Simulated scan of single mutants.
Amino acid sequence: MTPERLRAFCLEFNASVEEFPFGPETSVFKVLGKMFALTSLDAQPLTVNLKCDPDDAVRLREEHPAAVVPGWHMNKRHWNTVTVSGVPDKLLRELIEDSYDLVVAGLPRADRLRLDRP
C-alpha cells in the first residue's frame, strides 16, 4: 500500500479527519477527536500505529514478528506499529478498520449513533 492509498483509506471512514498535532510530518487520523491511526507518510519504511485489542496485539506480533511490533511511543498493550510492506494489503485494511472500530466503541453512545455504528 502506498502512502497515498493509506491516507485515502483512513479518510474513508465516517467522520474521519487528518490532523497534524505533532508537526507537519506526522499524520494523525481521528474520529470525533480520538486517534485511530498515526503515521509519517514520508517515512521509509512506511509504518502506521494502530489501536488493537490486547489479545489480538500479542497474536499479531507473534504471527508477523518482522512487521508488527508494540506501538512506538504508545501504550504497548493497546497499540501496534505495523510496517506496511510487511503485511498483506487485506490484513492492513482489516487492522485499520479494527482500530477505527475500537476507537468508535469507546465513544459516548450518542456519538456512536451519529456515526451509525452502535
Rank of each mutant, 00 (worst) to 15 (best):
35 M>D: 09
24 P>D: 15
5 R>Y: 11
69 V>I: 14
92 L>G: 01
24 P>T: 12
64 H>C: 00
69 V>K: 15
9 F>V: 00
40 S>C: 13
106 G>I: 08
33 G>R: 08
88 P>S: 10
7 R>G: 05
73 H>R: 06
29 F>C: 00
61 R>C: 10
10 C>N: 12
110 A>D: 14
68 V>M: 08
111 D>W: 09
81 T>N: 10
44 Q>H: 13
50 L>E: 11
116 D>K: 15
61 R>E: 01
24 P>Q: 12
8 A>C: 00
35 M>W: 12
42 D>Y: 05
92 L>Q: 00
24 P>V: 05
52 C>H: 01
109 R>D: 03
76 K>R: 14
43 A>F: 07
104 V>Q: 02
5 R>A: 15
32 L>I: 07
70 P>S: 11
25 E>R: 12
42 D>P: 00
13 F>K: 05
79 W>P: 01
57 A>W: 08
57 A>T: 04
19 E>F: 07
99 S>Y: 01
116 D>Q: 13
4 E>D: 15
118 P>I: 12
23 G>D: 04
55 D>K: 07
71 G>Y: 07
116 D>L: 13
25 E>G: 11
74 M>F: 00
101 D>H: 11
75 N>I: 06
97 E>R: 15
86 G>H: 09
113 L>V: 14
75 N>V: 07
63 E>G: 02
61 R>I: 04
117 R>C: 06
13 F>H: 01
80 N>H: 01
97 E>N: 09
58 V>N: 04
58 V>M: 10
82 V>G: 08
3 P>T: 05
57 A>I: 02
38 L>K: 07
42 D>A: 15
23 G>Q: 02
21 P>R: 04
37 A>W: 08
53 D>H: 10
70 P>N: 01
98 D>N: 14
26 T>D: 08
7 R>A: 13
115 L>T: 03
56 D>G: 08
66 A>N: 13
26 T>V: 15
29 F>H: 06
